[in-house]
Computed example of a mutant assay.
Amino acid sequence: MADSAGAAQPLRYDAWLWLMQANDSQYPSGAYAHSYGLEELVEAGVVKNAEGLECFLEKQILPALLSFELPYFVQAHRAAGRGDVAKLAELDGELDAWRLPAETRDASRRIGSRRLELLRQLAPSPLVENHAANCPFSHHLIVTSIELSSIPIAQAARAFAFQTITGFATASMKLMRIGQTVCQAIVRRTLDRIGMEIDVALSRPPDGWFNPLLEIASLRHARADARLFIS
């Protein structure tokens, strides 16, 4: 919730139960329709089995989370906590500039906009309404920071990292011959890896992350002859 100025206040319901609902795989954010470039990497043979998926998460996704997305998430979470919609819009614009492929920008905004609309219905507040009026097509990271603004940053950031990692893992099961148990084992090891470094990531400014492999894969996706995912 938020006060009349828009600053976050304690939820009128259990914030931890809300965290579980918002992070549940059945939460209809639309994320299931996006692979964020993984589909093209599988098609190109860069990621073709369980070992390749785990390497991809470790070498490509975790560094981006630790050096770029989580430090940005900290800034957005602080802005949401004080109801600073101008700062949230500024951060949203910066994220837009960092995401070079149009497919990646569009995917992030589609999911973010869907989550924002759900937030307006399920947990309305002055902060949510002010942000929706100011920046209706927000990036996923920004909306999640608002969504979890009543959760301590250490837990909220872990929830965002969990969303990212499991999103790729879920997409992989549609793209490769990989079982659920094997996939969950990969997720568990990946979460263990990021868990050892996440607190450091939360205390430093965003450094940026240049990932041409994933960016090229995202750019190629729009011209693919056949595809399972939107992006």
Rank of each mutant, 00 (worst) to 15 (best):
H221R: 08
T170W: 11
P205I: 12
T166H: 06
F168W: 11
H140N: 13
E69G: 04
L119K: 03
Q60N: 14
N134Q: 13
C55Q: 13
A157R: 04
E58H: 15
S67D: 12
K87R: 15
G52C: 11
E69N: 13
I111H: 00
L88D: 02
S203E: 14
L127T: 03
W18N: 02
S35T: 10
G6M: 07
I111Y: 02
A154V: 11
V128C: 09
R188P: 00
I111A: 01
T164N: 08
Q184M: 13
R188E: 14
L214S: 09
Y13P: 00
S29Q: 06
L66A: 10
M20K: 12
A107L: 02
G93K: 04
M196A: 15
A89H: 08
L66S: 05
R120D: 03
A132N: 08
N134W: 09
I165M: 10
A217I: 07
R204G: 04
V143C: 10
Q60H: 13
E58N: 14
T104P: 00
A226W: 04
A97D: 13
P71M: 11
G52R: 05
H140T: 03
Y27H: 15
E103R: 07
G30L: 10
I151F: 00
A89W: 02
E69A: 14
A132V: 07
Y36T: 02
P124Q: 13
S149R: 07
F229S: 03
P205F: 10
A224S: 15
T170P: 00
L202C: 11
N134T: 15
A44P: 00
P63I: 11
L17S: 10
G93Q: 09
A5N: 14
A201C: 09
Q60S: 13
W98P: 00
L53I: 08
P206G: 11
L95F: 08
A157N: 06
A31L: 07
S150N: 08
V128K: 02
S67A: 10
H77L: 09
S25Y: 09
H34P: 00
L91F: 06
F168V: 08
P136L: 14
R227Q: 13
F160V: 07
R99P: 00
A123L: 11
F56N: 04
I151G: 00
S218G: 10
L228W: 05
F56A: 03
S29D: 09
I194V: 15
L62W: 01
L127R: 02
L122G: 03
A79N: 05
P212F: 07
L148M: 12
F229I: 05
S29V: 01
Q180G: 14
W16T: 06
V85C: 11
R220G: 05
C183N: 13
W18R: 08
P206E: 09
L175Q: 12
V47F: 01
L70I: 15
S145F: 01
D24M: 04
L91K: 03
P71I: 07
F160D: 01
M196Q: 14
L119P: 00
L214D: 01
L17Q: 13
A123D: 02
V200A: 14
D3Y: 09
W16V: 04
R158P: 02
R177S: 15
S125Q: 05
P124D: 12
V200G: 06
L141E: 05
H77S: 08
W18C: 01
V128Y: 07
K59Q: 15
D92I: 00
M20P: 00
L57Q: 05
D96V: 09
L62Q: 08
F229A: 04
A133I: 04
E54G: 03
G30A: 10
G195L: 08
A64W: 02
